[in-house]
Write a protein that binds this DNA or RNA. Sequence first.
DNA 1: GTCCATGTTCTTTA
DNA 2: CTAAAGAACATGGA
Length: 285
Amino acid sequence: MPELPEVETIARAIRPILIGRRIDAVLLNRSSVLKNVPRGTFLEKPLSHQIFLSQKLGGRHVADISRRAKRIVFTLDDGNRFYIHLGMSGRLTLEPTGVQVKRHTHFVATFGQDELRFTDPRRFGGIFWVGETGQVDEGLGPEPLTMPAAELARRLAKTSRAIKNALLDQSLIAGLGNIYVDESLHEANIHPLTPANKLSRVQVSSLTRSIKRVLDRALEHRGSTLRDYRDARGKPGNFQNLHQVYQRSGKPCLKCKTVIERIIVGGRSTHFCPSCQAKRDVSAK
DNA sequence: GTCCATGTTCTTTA
DNA sequence: CTAAAGAACATGGA
Protein backbone atom coordinates (compact mmCIF):
# COMPACT_ATOMS: atom_id res chain seq x y z
CA MET A 1 0.00 0.00 0.00
CA PRO A 2 2.48 2.56 1.01
CA GLU A 3 4.89 3.97 -1.52
CA LEU A 4 7.56 6.59 -1.07
CA PRO A 5 5.24 9.53 -0.21
CA GLU A 6 3.25 7.57 2.35
CA VAL A 7 6.36 6.12 3.98
CA GLU A 8 8.06 9.53 4.05
CA THR A 9 4.96 11.09 5.60
CA ILE A 10 5.08 8.56 8.42
CA ALA A 11 8.83 8.91 8.92
CA ARG A 12 8.56 12.70 9.14
CA ALA A 13 5.85 12.42 11.76
CA ILE A 14 7.54 9.99 14.10
CA ARG A 15 11.10 11.32 13.70
CA PRO A 16 10.81 14.45 15.90
CA ILE A 17 8.81 12.63 18.53
CA LEU A 18 10.95 9.53 18.95
CA ILE A 19 14.51 10.70 18.38
CA GLY A 20 16.38 10.73 21.69
CA ARG A 21 13.66 8.77 23.44
CA ARG A 22 14.30 5.62 25.43
CA ILE A 23 12.63 2.35 24.45
CA ASP A 24 11.15 1.08 27.70
CA ALA A 25 9.73 -2.16 26.39
CA VAL A 26 9.02 -4.05 23.18
CA LEU A 27 6.35 -6.58 22.44
CA LEU A 28 6.48 -8.93 19.45
CA ASN A 29 3.14 -10.63 19.09
CA ARG A 30 4.04 -12.63 16.01
CA SER A 31 7.61 -13.78 15.67
CA SER A 32 7.50 -14.25 11.90
CA VAL A 33 7.13 -10.49 11.48
CA LEU A 34 10.75 -10.04 12.60
CA LYS A 35 13.09 -10.94 9.76
CA ASN A 36 16.84 -11.34 9.32
CA VAL A 37 17.48 -12.38 12.91
CA PRO A 38 21.05 -13.69 12.93
CA ARG A 39 21.45 -17.40 13.57
CA GLY A 40 22.86 -18.12 16.98
CA THR A 41 26.55 -19.01 16.82
CA PHE A 42 27.13 -22.69 17.48
CA LEU A 43 26.86 -23.81 21.08
CA GLU A 44 24.40 -20.95 21.49
CA LYS A 45 20.74 -21.74 21.67
CA PRO A 46 18.84 -19.89 18.97
CA LEU A 47 17.20 -16.90 20.60
CA SER A 48 13.48 -16.51 20.33
CA HIS A 49 12.58 -13.54 18.22
CA GLN A 50 10.85 -11.81 21.11
CA ILE A 51 13.88 -12.21 23.38
CA PHE A 52 16.26 -11.12 20.63
CA LEU A 53 14.28 -7.95 20.03
CA SER A 54 13.90 -7.15 23.72
CA GLN A 55 17.63 -7.57 24.27
CA LYS A 56 18.54 -5.39 21.32
CA LEU A 57 15.97 -2.61 21.78
CA GLY A 58 15.16 -2.59 25.48
CA GLY A 59 16.72 0.38 27.29
CA ARG A 60 18.26 1.79 24.10
CA HIS A 61 17.63 5.30 22.83
CA VAL A 62 16.62 6.13 19.28
CA ALA A 63 19.50 7.96 17.63
CA ASP A 64 17.90 8.47 14.22
CA ILE A 65 14.90 7.70 12.05
CA SER A 66 15.13 8.01 8.28
CA ARG A 67 13.57 6.69 5.12
CA ARG A 68 15.23 4.74 2.31
CA ALA A 69 12.87 3.77 -0.53
CA LYS A 70 9.85 2.25 1.23
CA ARG A 71 11.83 1.40 4.36
CA ILE A 72 11.67 3.31 7.63
CA VAL A 73 15.12 2.98 9.14
CA PHE A 74 15.73 3.15 12.89
CA THR A 75 19.23 3.69 14.25
CA LEU A 76 19.83 2.98 17.93
CA ASP A 77 22.31 4.73 20.21
CA ASP A 78 24.61 1.70 20.03
CA GLY A 79 24.80 1.79 16.23
CA ASN A 80 22.42 -1.10 15.61
CA ARG A 81 19.78 -0.54 12.96
CA PHE A 82 16.56 -2.11 11.77
CA TYR A 83 13.93 -1.05 9.31
CA ILE A 84 10.20 -1.48 9.02
CA HIS A 85 8.57 -2.21 5.67
CA LEU A 86 4.80 -1.78 5.54
CA GLY A 87 4.11 -4.22 2.72
CA MET A 88 0.61 -3.81 1.31
CA SER A 89 -1.54 -3.30 4.38
CA GLY A 90 0.89 -2.23 7.08
CA ARG A 91 0.45 0.74 9.38
CA LEU A 92 2.92 2.33 11.74
CA THR A 93 1.17 4.48 14.30
CA LEU A 94 2.05 6.50 17.34
CA GLU A 95 -0.60 6.16 20.02
CA PRO A 96 -0.85 6.82 23.74
CA THR A 97 -0.52 3.75 25.93
CA GLY A 98 -3.96 2.71 26.99
CA VAL A 99 -5.59 3.23 23.61
CA GLN A 100 -7.11 -0.04 22.49
CA VAL A 101 -4.61 -2.07 20.45
CA LYS A 102 -6.02 -2.99 17.04
CA ARG A 103 -6.28 -6.48 15.64
CA HIS A 104 -3.21 -7.63 13.68
CA THR A 105 -0.85 -5.50 15.75
CA HIS A 106 2.39 -7.47 15.61
CA PHE A 107 4.86 -5.15 17.28
CA VAL A 108 4.68 -2.48 19.97
CA ALA A 109 7.54 -0.34 21.29
CA THR A 110 6.81 1.68 24.40
CA PHE A 111 8.36 5.12 24.99
CA GLY A 112 6.97 6.42 28.26
CA GLN A 113 3.35 7.28 27.52
CA ASP A 114 3.75 6.84 23.74
CA GLU A 115 3.61 3.60 21.84
CA LEU A 116 4.85 2.89 18.34
CA ARG A 117 2.63 0.17 16.88
CA PHE A 118 3.06 -1.92 13.73
CA THR A 119 -0.22 -3.35 12.45
CA ASP A 120 -0.44 -5.41 9.27
CA PRO A 121 -3.36 -7.77 8.45
CA ARG A 122 -1.82 -9.27 5.33
CA ARG A 123 1.64 -9.56 6.86
CA PHE A 124 3.51 -8.75 3.66
CA GLY A 125 5.44 -6.21 5.68
CA GLY A 126 7.85 -6.79 8.52
CA ILE A 127 10.62 -5.63 10.81
CA PHE A 128 14.02 -6.27 9.27
CA TRP A 129 17.01 -6.49 11.55
CA VAL A 130 20.10 -4.88 9.98
CA GLY A 131 22.52 -4.66 12.93
CA GLU A 132 25.73 -2.62 12.71
CA THR A 133 27.24 -4.25 9.67
CA GLY A 134 24.23 -5.05 7.49
CA GLN A 135 23.20 -2.92 4.55
CA VAL A 136 19.99 -0.87 4.63
CA ASP A 137 20.41 -0.35 0.87
CA GLU A 138 20.30 -4.06 0.06
CA GLY A 139 18.64 -4.58 -3.32
CA LEU A 140 17.72 -0.94 -3.82
CA GLY A 141 18.30 1.37 -6.77
CA PRO A 142 18.63 5.16 -6.44
CA GLU A 143 16.17 7.46 -4.69
CA PRO A 144 13.85 8.96 -7.32
CA LEU A 145 13.77 12.45 -5.79
CA THR A 146 17.52 12.95 -6.17
CA MET A 147 18.25 10.76 -9.19
CA PRO A 148 19.66 12.53 -12.26
CA ALA A 149 17.97 11.80 -15.60
CA ALA A 150 21.24 10.43 -16.95
CA GLU A 151 21.27 7.74 -14.30
CA LEU A 152 17.70 6.67 -15.05
CA ALA A 153 18.57 6.63 -18.76
CA ARG A 154 21.57 4.41 -18.14
CA ARG A 155 19.50 1.98 -16.10
CA LEU A 156 16.52 1.85 -18.44
CA ALA A 157 18.79 1.24 -21.43
CA LYS A 158 19.70 -2.13 -19.96
CA THR A 159 16.26 -3.71 -20.14
CA SER A 160 13.61 -4.34 -22.74
CA ARG A 161 10.82 -4.78 -20.22
CA ALA A 162 7.78 -2.52 -20.40
CA ILE A 163 8.59 0.81 -18.73
CA LYS A 164 5.75 0.12 -16.28
CA ASN A 165 7.52 -3.02 -15.04
CA ALA A 166 10.95 -1.41 -15.03
CA LEU A 167 9.79 1.45 -12.78
CA LEU A 168 8.26 -1.03 -10.33
CA ASP A 169 11.61 -2.81 -10.03
CA GLN A 170 13.06 -1.54 -6.74
CA SER A 171 16.59 -2.48 -7.76
CA LEU A 172 16.29 -0.21 -10.80
CA ILE A 173 14.67 2.76 -9.02
CA ALA A 174 13.56 2.53 -5.40
CA GLY A 175 10.37 3.81 -3.83
CA LEU A 176 7.79 3.84 -6.60
CA GLY A 177 4.78 1.54 -6.56
CA ASN A 178 1.73 0.95 -8.69
CA ILE A 179 0.06 4.31 -8.05
CA TYR A 180 3.01 6.60 -8.65
CA VAL A 181 4.30 4.69 -11.66
CA ASP A 182 0.95 5.09 -13.41
CA GLU A 183 0.68 8.74 -12.40
CA SER A 184 4.25 9.52 -13.48
CA LEU A 185 3.87 7.83 -16.87
CA HIS A 186 0.71 9.81 -17.49
CA GLU A 187 2.35 13.06 -16.50
CA ALA A 188 5.20 12.28 -18.91
CA ASN A 189 2.83 11.14 -21.70
CA ILE A 190 4.48 7.74 -21.97
CA HIS A 191 2.59 4.55 -22.78
CA PRO A 192 3.12 1.96 -20.01
CA LEU A 193 3.98 -0.82 -22.48
CA THR A 194 6.83 1.08 -24.11
CA PRO A 195 10.01 -1.02 -23.87
CA ALA A 196 12.27 0.71 -21.34
CA ASN A 197 15.24 0.75 -23.69
CA LYS A 198 13.17 2.34 -26.47
CA LEU A 199 12.53 5.60 -24.63
CA SER A 200 14.19 8.59 -26.20
CA ARG A 201 16.54 10.82 -24.24
CA VAL A 202 13.82 13.47 -24.22
CA GLN A 203 11.29 11.02 -22.84
CA VAL A 204 13.62 9.90 -20.05
CA SER A 205 14.26 13.53 -19.04
CA SER A 206 10.55 14.18 -19.06
CA LEU A 207 9.90 11.02 -17.07
CA THR A 208 12.52 11.93 -14.48
CA ARG A 209 10.94 15.34 -13.98
CA SER A 210 7.44 13.83 -13.88
CA ILE A 211 8.39 11.29 -11.23
CA LYS A 212 9.79 14.04 -9.01
CA ARG A 213 6.84 16.33 -9.59
CA VAL A 214 4.29 13.61 -8.85
CA LEU A 215 6.12 12.47 -5.71
CA ASP A 216 6.54 16.06 -4.46
CA ARG A 217 2.86 16.77 -4.97
CA ALA A 218 1.88 13.51 -3.28
CA LEU A 219 4.08 14.44 -0.32
CA GLU A 220 2.43 17.85 -0.03
CA HIS A 221 -0.89 16.04 0.25
CA ARG A 222 0.41 13.45 2.73
CA GLY A 223 0.15 10.48 0.40
CA SER A 224 -2.73 8.54 -1.15
CA THR A 225 -5.31 6.55 0.79
CA LEU A 226 -7.09 3.94 -1.30
CA ARG A 227 -8.17 1.75 1.56
CA ASP A 228 -5.54 0.85 4.14
CA TYR A 229 -3.06 3.69 4.30
CA ARG A 230 -3.09 5.89 7.39
CA ASP A 231 -0.39 8.21 8.66
CA ALA A 232 1.29 7.88 12.05
CA ARG A 233 -1.73 9.51 13.70
CA GLY A 234 -4.25 7.32 11.92
CA LYS A 235 -5.32 9.94 9.39
CA PRO A 236 -5.75 9.19 5.67
CA GLY A 237 -3.82 11.03 2.96
CA ASN A 238 -5.43 13.34 0.40
CA PHE A 239 -3.54 12.79 -2.82
CA GLN A 240 -6.02 10.16 -4.09
CA ASN A 241 -8.32 13.08 -4.93
CA LEU A 242 -5.72 14.41 -7.33
CA HIS A 243 -4.93 11.18 -9.18
CA GLN A 244 -5.07 11.66 -12.93
CA VAL A 245 -5.33 8.00 -13.95
CA TYR A 246 -4.95 5.64 -11.01
CA GLN A 247 -8.29 3.91 -10.39
CA ARG A 248 -9.94 6.26 -12.87
CA SER A 249 -10.55 3.74 -15.66
CA GLY A 250 -13.75 4.53 -17.55
CA LYS A 251 -13.57 8.18 -16.53
CA PRO A 252 -12.44 11.02 -18.80
CA CYS A 253 -8.79 12.01 -18.87
CA LEU A 254 -8.48 15.32 -17.03
CA LYS A 255 -6.18 16.63 -19.74
CA CYS A 256 -7.98 15.54 -22.93
CA LYS A 257 -11.32 13.89 -21.99
CA THR A 258 -10.43 10.55 -23.57
CA VAL A 259 -11.66 7.62 -21.49
CA ILE A 260 -8.94 6.22 -19.19
CA GLU A 261 -8.15 2.56 -19.86
CA ARG A 262 -7.13 -0.19 -17.49
CA ILE A 263 -4.94 -3.05 -18.65
CA ILE A 264 -2.87 -5.67 -16.83
CA VAL A 265 0.89 -5.32 -17.07
CA GLY A 266 3.16 -7.65 -15.16
CA GLY A 267 0.11 -8.87 -13.27
CA ARG A 268 -0.66 -5.36 -12.01
CA SER A 269 -3.54 -3.06 -12.84
CA THR A 270 -2.26 -0.31 -15.11
CA HIS A 271 -4.18 2.88 -15.80
CA PHE A 272 -3.44 5.23 -18.68
CA CYS A 273 -4.90 7.63 -21.20
CA PRO A 274 -4.68 6.08 -24.68
CA SER A 275 -4.61 9.53 -26.22
CA CYS A 276 -2.12 11.40 -24.01
CA GLN A 277 0.02 8.26 -23.72
CA ALA A 278 0.00 7.09 -27.31
CA LYS A 279 2.24 4.15 -28.14
CA ARG A 280 4.39 5.90 -30.70
CA ASP A 281 6.65 8.63 -29.55
CA VAL A 282 5.86 11.86 -31.35
CA SER A 283 7.76 14.29 -29.14
CA ALA A 284 11.26 13.11 -29.91
CA LYS A 285 13.32 12.84 -33.11
C1' DG B 1 -18.80 -17.71 -4.29
C1' DT B 2 -15.82 -14.10 -7.32
C1' DC B 3 -12.46 -10.58 -8.08
C1' DC B 4 -9.38 -7.24 -6.49
C1' DA B 5 -5.84 -4.86 -3.56
C1' DT B 6 -0.61 0.92 -2.32
C1' DG B 7 4.52 -5.28 -2.40
C1' DT B 8 8.15 -8.52 -2.58
C1' DT B 9 10.25 -12.96 -3.40
C1' DC B 10 10.54 -17.43 -5.07
C1' DT B 11 9.81 -20.52 -9.08
C1' DT B 12 9.15 -21.47 -13.78
C1' DT B 13 9.64 -20.46 -18.55
C1' DA B 14 11.87 -18.81 -22.62
C1' DC C 1 23.32 -18.65 -18.04
C1' DT C 2 20.10 -14.81 -17.63
C1' DA C 3 16.02 -12.04 -18.23
C1' DA C 4 11.30 -12.02 -17.95
C1' DA C 5 6.89 -13.84 -16.73
C1' DG C 6 3.99 -16.12 -13.21
C1' DA C 7 2.77 -17.82 -8.85
C1' DA C 8 2.71 -17.39 -4.09
C1' DC C 9 2.24 -15.19 0.23
C1' DA C 10 -2.48 -13.69 3.88
C1' DT C 11 -6.43 -11.05 4.77
C1' DG C 12 -10.40 -8.39 3.94
C1' DG C 13 -13.66 -5.56 1.26
C1' DA C 14 -16.81 -4.90 -2.67
